[in-house]
Design a binder for these strands. Structure first.
Lengths: 178, 178
DNA sequence: TGTACATCAGTGAACGCGCGTTCACTGATGTAC
DNA sequence: TGTACATCAGTGAACGCGCGTTCACTGATGTAC
């Protein structure tokens, strides 16, 4: 083996990380394979030594982004705290590192079956995480919907309107979950 | 005037309608100017007699889709009824005629300023509509977030999971708004 | 310890393709006589 | 009423461009002697 054992795996992970951030920030079709490779410090030609297609990369990038997004709220010990962290201005601004459901949901739902499956799996994992913190709340789906929709809508508004919108969403959930 | 007075305006409206449905169903970058024109029964070359650019069309298509989406819930006389109509399986399946915030939100937020402005305007209109039906609910932003997020997430799931997810979202809002 | 070699991760030119946009034109229409 | 004409909505070939993907290659590496 003329190269360090984990060299290729490390490069592959660098590509997934670069893709996952670029897609969330700029959208799937707006980011080319060449963009991703450049961001990973490589040239575009080497891409197909690591992935079968852009869609195969996308499916992995979604899983990677999902895990990263779950870390953001990992310390929350109840549903309201988790939702408050999610509906924060910090999360709003950090589009590159944000929840892929909010950043790319509709686009991913229209993508090829492998990608769709990765998104559906992430949603199921997310719901399971919420159920563990559910307390008296029987309908965690509604909480997740409010989180994702809240972030998506806030991102469409001006900074000041976005701030107010997030505040209202948090207040809404506070009343429901208190 | 060698053509009926409203001929060109009618053609233009046919293009906007075709675009608005195609974009919602398949996404913005996945639908070409040629696709839109074909759907409107025309050839691609004529497009620029009606619009300056694909983005100019998109901004109008968002406004058109928004108005169409508001009609779906126009008969609702209270917030819960409106949300229940929005979170229906009928709306889930009718992606072509559905709410553009749910179908295209994140993509539109990343689009050019004219498009973004059209989306922000539609959201403000939507919030104003909800406030009119608000009753005791002070945080209509949370209701809209739950509607939009609920539809987006349901569309990522299998038909049976989607049905359950929508049910849970409706039950969630029922408890909050009752 | 030093050198020759085989490996294979990464390079970069090339491919066919469809995109958004432009433009010289065609031909159906309402108007003037 | 019938015909010649000017208008302009719509046509379709063409443009430059960037995309996803392929492939012959290069050159840095660990191994064998």
């Amino acid at each position: 083996m003329p190269w360090p054992k984990d060299h290729k795996r490390a490069t592959r992970e660098r590509i997934v990380e670069a893709a996952s951030r670029a897609f969330r920030k700029r959208g799937i079709t707006e980011v080319s394979v060449g963009d991703v490779m450049e961001r990973a410090g490589l040239t575009h030609g080497g891409f197909y030594a690591h992935f079968d297609s852009k869609d195969a990369l996308l499916a992995e990038a979604v899983a990677h982004a999902g895990a990263q997004a779950r870390e953001r709220t990992a310390k929350a010990s109840d549903l309201l705290t988790l939702a408050t962290m999610y509906l924060s201005e910090e999360h709003l601004r950090d589009s590159e590192g944000s929840c892929p459901i909010a950043a790319l949901g509709p686009e991913l739902s229209r993508s090829d079956p492998h990608v769709r499956r990765a998104l559906a799996a992430e949603i199921r994992t997310r719901l399971a995480g919420l159920r563990e913190l559910a307390g008296n709340e029987r309908h965690v789906a509604g909480v997740l919907a409010c989180m994702v929709g809240g972030l998506i809508i806030a991102r469409a508004l001006s900074p000041s309107d976005a701030k107010l919108f997030l505040q209202e969403c948090r207040a809404f959930l506070e009343e429901k979950l208190a």
